[in-house]
Amino acid sequence: MSNGDSTVPLLAARDLTKAHGRTEALRGASVELRAGEILAVTGPSGSGKSTLLHCLAGIVSPDAGSVTYDGQRLDELPEKRLSELRRTDFGVVFQFGQLIPELTALDNVALPLMLAGAPRKDAQAAAGEWLERFGVRGQEALRPGELSGGQAQRAALARALVTGPKVVFADEPTGALDSLATEQVMTSLVHTAREAGAAVLLITHDAQVAAYADREVRLSDGAVLPAGVTA
């Protein structure tokens, strides 16, 4: 089943609750993401932004509520299927890109394709193209520790997009970068996501970063604030 109607959300969370021990991170949060849309989720520290992203990406299961992706209940899928979705339909980037230090930038970007069974040469060729799109050409043989923060984050974005995902989850992707690198990374992300038709769920507490999005929802104490209300 594929989502061709832009009015029907590609990804939807309804009344999510999630507690970490005694701390309630989400209290009935609901949010929708349409195909090709860039949505910023903002809010103060501890408001539940990252937990919401983890639930939407199928990384953690909510305690209550539902997450629907392309007509499937994510919270009911087995881990095997969730892994497959992360490999094919989702791309994930965190504040620290989660690149594997033992692999070169090229192999890091090629990794999802290799895990899917693509021959290494083909995977590397595709990875090289994506690194070029993100302006990291010429750094393919370097390991993450040898890249600058901005380069590493752009390589992480290339890895998130190399499989042609329908949704990119970005959790504070510029949180550790200076303003120039932030601008480069965000410009690359928005431009490439639009070109590829991927939706982006962008978690940030930075208003300048949120300005790159088509729409913004604000989270406070684990719940989404109505439009116009500030935390």
Partner: peptide
């Protein structure tokens, strides 16, 4: 990190 890149637990 491998799991984040899409590796299944068995992989």
């Amino acid at each position: 990190a491998l799991r984040l890149a899409g590796a299944a637990p068995w992989q």
